[in-house]
Structure formats: structure tokens, C-alpha cells
């Protein structure tokens, strides 16, 4: 469903090219739930932006739902949902319901399907009490539920979330998590999320990608991730250890298939 081949992006900073993402190759199959970890500045968001057609890669290529995100951005937009935890897609001054209506028109969702989908999402995400509230008056948790709804109204095959639980309280976090788990299990939606919250990873992701210094440093299950640093009790300590011990590593060949073979590590 998602495939990258030697994907890379350089940024020009005061005349010199700084690579944000380098030689990133991985593959996410349909129906997978994949979490993307990495220290700040590791290149997670840059990767997400390249996968969603916001940034053009400077090296390699990506395929999402069989489409090239840069060249087929519009076609892709109709097939993926995107949520950025620190951003909002909603219209600030409009009631939530009106933002959804605009999203419906933007994505050309059939009116009946829209009604049905919104009713479902309203029930599951408990949007009813604030559907008529202007977005600027919503709490962060409410707004996030609104943003997730907006990303799912056109029933995308792939949902990409960049730090969806950032700033949310425990209850709101739990609600968002259980919703995402259900979405993945019941509708088979492929989910790729980035996070700093290891609770997201432990509770949701069957597979973890660790991005460090713009490269793929680990690809495997949570259990395999734990096994990397023996003797550490909590997953927080495991990840902290990996972040601290990492150095800009030499290019490496990550595994291509999501199953079977053992995890590769360059941490």
C-alpha cells in the first residue's frame, strides 16, 4: 500500500544541502498498522510530507496506493486521509459541521454516503455535542476528533497521521487510540502514524519503523524492538537508549518485506 525506494529529501540551509531523509526504503502492506518512531528532527514529518504529496523528494521515489504522491497528488488525495496533530484542516470560524460539508464538496463525496459516514463517525467519536460549535471554540481533544473525522469522510484506504495524540489528555488519547484500532480492524484501513508517545506504539502498532538521522534504523515488531536493548524494563528506556546510542550511520539495506525475516538494526 505504501512503498518507498531510496527515498530522500535534502533541504538547502544557508547555501549548503542538508539531508533530512536519506535512502529510505520500506514497504507497508494493505491493512497494516505501522508506527514511526524517531527523535525530533529525525525526518519523520518530512517522510510523511513526501508520502502525502506535500513535499517533492529530491532522491528516490514513493508509491502510495499505487500512485506517485508528487505527480498524482490530486488522485492520491481522494484515496488517503491525512491528520497532522499540530495542524488543523478545519475552518477556524465555521461550525464543525460546515467544515465537514466543505470537505465533502472538496472530495466530491456523494451526499448519501457522506451522511451515513458522518453519522457513524459522530457516534463513534462522540461529536454530537459540538457539531455546531465554531472550531475556534473547541478543546484540543474535540478538535482532534474533528480533524480525524474530516480525514475519513471520503473513506480513504490509507490513513496517515503525524503525531495524532500530541497534547491530548489520557482520556482523549485512549479514545483516539481505540478509534484507530477499530478503524484498522473493522474497515481494514492501512494506518501509518508517527508519534513520540510510546503508548501509541505499544497499544496500536504491530510494526515499528525507527527513523534516525533520516535513515531507517529499525524495522520490526515491538517485541523485537525491546529485544534490542536487553535488561531495560520499560519501552521508554529502550527507545531512549536507542536514540542516545545512535550516530549518523553508513547507508544500509533495510528489509523489504513486512513479515518473516529478522529485524535489521543500525542503532
Amino acid at each position: 500500500m505504501i512503498e518507498t525506494i531510496s527515498l530522500g529529501r535534502d533541504f538547502k540551509v544557508r547555501g549548503t544541502l542538508v539531508p533530512a531523509v536519506r535512502d529510505l526504503s520500506f514497504r507497508v502492506g494493505a491493512g497494516e498498522f505501522v508506527g514511526c518512531l524517531g527523535p525530533n528532527g529525525a525526518g519523520k514529518s518530512t517522510t510523511i510530507k513526501m508520502l502525502t504529496g506535500i513535499l517533492t523528494p529530491t532522491h528516490g521515489r514513493a508509491l502510495v496506493a499505487g500512485l506517485d504522491p508528487t505527480r498524482q497528488r490530486k488522485a492520491l488525495a481522494r484515496r488517503i486521509g491525512v491528520v497532522f496533530g499540530q495542524r488543523t484542516t478545519l475552518w477556524w470560524d465555521l461550525p464543525l459541521r460546515d467544515s465537514f460539508e466543505l470537505v465533502r464538496l472538496l472530495y466530491k463525496v456523494d451526499r448519501n454516503r457522506f451522511r451515513q459516514r458522518l453519522a457513524e463517525l459522530t457516534e463513534v467519536l462522540e461529536l454530537a455535542p459540538f457539531l455546531r460549535t465554531p472550531v475556534r471554540q473547541l478543546s484540543l481533544g474535540q478538535r482532534m476528533r474533528g480533524d480525524i473525522t474530516a480525514a475519513l469522510l471520503h473513506d480513504p484506504e490509507v490513513l496517515v497521521l503525524d503525531e495524532p495524540t500530541i497534547g491530548l489528555d489520557v482520556v482523549a488519547k485512549a479514545e483516539v487510540r481505540s478509534f484507530l484500532a477499530r478503524l484498522n480492524a473493522e474497515r481494514g484501513t492501512t494506518v501509518l502514524l508517527t508519534t513520540h508517545d510510546l503508548g501509541d506504539i505499544e497499544r496500536l502498532c504491530r510494526r515499528v519503523l525507527l527513523i534516525d538521522h533520516g535513515r531507517l534504523a529499525f524495522d520490526g515488531s515491538v517485541a523485537e524492538l525491546r529485544a534490542l536493548v536487553p535488561g531495560q524494563e520499560s519501552i521508554e528506556d529502550v527507545v531512549a537508549h536507542l536514540y542516545l546510542s545512535s550516530t549518523p550511520a553508513a547507508p544500509r539495506t533495510p528489509r523489504r518485506t513486512p513479515d518473516a525475516d529478522p529485524p535489521t538494526v543500525t542503532a
Partner: peptide, 10 residues
Amino acid sequence: GDIAFDLVRP
């Protein structure tokens, strides 16, 4: 940075 969304829209 919210422009990211405007650029994703079809």
C-alpha cells in the same frame, strides 16, 4: 504550516 493541508486538498 497549516498550508500543508491546503496543498493536500484536491
